[in-house]
């Protein structure tokens, strides 16, 4: 019987004693989709992943993975999953090739079939030349690729990736993203957690932003940015102790010049929830100013024009940077905190 969704969770909750790691979240992952869980450390992402992977029990709620309850059919659910944990837990006592073969044996797959499959996976992970090497002689990126190749040995329907590229250099990251992209195109459902915005934007079609065990927002990366942030951001540094007073000055300056219609408040957070208003007046489209310890973030439709206005008013920031809004800004907007600390 074909099941439309790959994963469906309702009221998913996990408590450890008094501590609630996951606080009644609902989400659905469709087949063939790439789905992201975005949030800071300790938001409950990994715990959610563990519950999907049938290695953690639920405190409340229901969950179905490929139409099965992971708590009732652990081995059968895990047979359909490929799990890539946060830290590579390769078997250091085995060679690169043996790592994949043994892992396949854990699924009860026949050795003869595994021999051929392993070569194919080594090729995929660009590790064919390292087949007989010891695991500890591999570089960080190679280990990560081997972990992924290993997780593919049972041709999983759903691939769970916990922080897949954390700790890798940019080049290794791009190789990895490329491999994951191919998997996505071949129809594998990807579920990944990350606190890297660029990764989420690259890999996820749809994501949920989680914080303190609750879902803060849901949507596509572009949609989330559209809904919760302005098009552009202006980053300014005035020096540590001057940021706060400058923020009020900037808010006053930019909101008077722009959407005077609704007379936006002069506080740090300007417009209320329910969409960030992009008042067209003056072409700045100013929304609000966020104060971070080391810098100010000015949210505006056109950051370039905002900068011009600021210069025109005689303010001289030490540095300024114009960039497009990212998921980082969405998270900041939703929680008042930055993602990577």
């Amino acid at each position: 019987m074909p099941v439309e969704h790959a994963i469906r969770a309702t009221g998913l909750t996990k408590r450890y004693g008094d501590f609630t790691a996951v606080d009644g979240i609902d989400f659905t992952v469709n087949r063939g989709e790439s789905f992201g869980l975005l949030g800071p450390n300790g938001a409950g992402k990994s715990t959610t992943m563990r519950m999907i992977a049938a290695v953690a029990s639920r405190s409340a709620g229901t969950m179905s993975v490929a139409g099965l309850d992971p708590e009732q059919n652990g081995p059968e659910v895990r047979a359909r999953l490929g799990v890539i944990p946060q830290q590579d837990n390769l078997d250091e006592e085995l060679s690169v090739r043996e790592n994949i073969i043994m892992y396949g044996r854990y699924f009860g797959l026949p050795r003869r079939w595994l021999n051929a499959k392993t070569e194919e996976l080594l090729e995929f992970a660009q590790l064919s030349h390292k087949a007989t090497a010891r695991v500890e002689d591999l570089s960080g990126g190679m280990k990560r690729r081997l972990t992924i190749a290993r997780a593919l040995v049972n041709e999983p329907e759903i691939l769970l990736l916990d922080e897949p590229t954390t700790g890798l250099d940019p080049q290794a990251r791009h190789i990895l993203w490329d491999r994951l992209f191919r998997l996505r195109e071949s129809g594998t459902t990807l579920v990944l957690t990350t606190h890297h915005m660029d990764e989420a934007e690259q890999l996820c079609e749809r994501l949920i932003v989680v914080d303190e065990g609750r879902i803060m927002a849901e949507g596509s990366p572009a949609g989330l940015i559209r809904d919760h942030s302005t098009r552009e951001v202006l980053e300014l540094r005035f020096g540590m102790d001057r940021n706060q007073e400058q923020a009020q000055q900037l808010t006053a300056l930019l909101s008077s010049g722009a959407a005077s219609a609704d007379g936006a408040a002069a506080e740090g957070r300007a417009t209320g929830d329910g969409g960030v208003g992009v008042g067209g007046g003056g072409g700045v489209g100013f929304s609000h100013v966020e104060v971070l310890p080391d810098r100010l973030l000015v949210y505006a439709g056109s950051a370039e024009s905002a900068l011009e206005q600021i210069h025109a008013a005689g303010l001289r920031p030490m540095t300024s940077l114009v960039r497009r809004s990212s998921l980082e800004d969405v998270f900041l907007r939703l929680t008042g905190r930055t993602l990577v600390d």
Binding site: A53, P85, N89, Y103, Y106, G108, N154
Partner: peptide
């Protein structure tokens, strides 16, 4: 080495 955890992510 957390080998058992790895084993437990299979069937």
């Amino acid at each position: 080495t957390k080998l058992y955890r790895t084993m437990m992510s299979t069937s």
